[in-house]
Design a protein around this nucleic acid. Sequence first.
DNA 1: AATGACTCTGAGAAGCATTCTCAAGAAAGC
DNA 2: GCTTTCTTGAGAATGCTTCTCAGAGTCATT
Lengths: 143, 143
Amino acid sequence: MSDAPDTEDSEDLLKRADLRITRPRQAIARVLYEAEDHPDAEAVHTRAREHDPSVSQATAYRTLAILAEKGLLRTHTFDGSATRFELADRPHHDHLIDIESGEVTEFVSSEIEALQARVAEKYGYEIVAHRLELYCRKRKGDG
Amino acid sequence: MSDAPDTEDSEDLLKRADLRITRPRQAIARVLYEAEDHPDAEAVHTRAREHDPSVSQATAYRTLAILAEKGLLRTHTFDGSATRFELADRPHHDHLIDIESGEVTEFVSSEIEALQARVAEKYGYEIVAHRLELYCRKRKGDG
DNA sequence: AATGACTCTGAGAAGCATTCTCAAGAAAGC
DNA sequence: GCTTTCTTGAGAATGCTTCTCAGAGTCATT
């Protein structure tokens, strides 16, 4: 188990946020580095408890809020459900959300991005960031 | 006060949703036709009470949920706050946000929408709704 | 217009995600 | 080790939304 890299990264994350290094926060930061999905606060809390069972819900919410506010986390609010978090330094991607199961699929379309740039250009702008979410339903007749 | 057209439209809306025509629902549907913004459930409730003071919060939420589910209303969730509603037959648009001035420009790109549909299709989905926001900065050298 | 099957309704309770409160507990600097 | 300051956990509180249920209303049929 080479968890040393994650531990280093997560301490760094806390330092970049000007936060004191504490056990609960390390657990939370580690969860964020380990995550390959977009966990919500509840999920982060649950996973953090596997590293430190004492981590409270309040601390999970608090820490996530601070990191998001400092720009170290991206937040996604997929239509009404719980806010989901993701490290801001992870590569950009857009989201396809299954409105029935809540499952999220990541995708990137350079064609769409190119068209977005053209739209922006048309209005005299250049894109700094964007958000694209597709709310979808499984197609019937597909395997 | 020529509210006859609105009344007609709103009855039609309820019929299209397979709902019985009731006073509270007529009030709610009328509010939706009168609205030129994107009211949340609370706002719809408040405005509906001006037409029928007895309309309850529960009925407002219930009716909006049904209409949204049947695709007659679009919903927007701006940053975790309350869900906002808009008639689905109002023209769709996406947003280009000037990150310096906060100015919002509405746009539509059928090319982008077509590509979105293709992305969804690729993963076995059909799009029910989407959200596209471009966060931009004015291009230098442009007026 | 009365009937009857079924749908709607209001009021308040309940449910979720999230935030707040506060006294006890740690981190960092000295 | 002591002090200052920040954090913490537990639970209460909040805000939005949904549920419960008995009474009232709708609508197709007489």
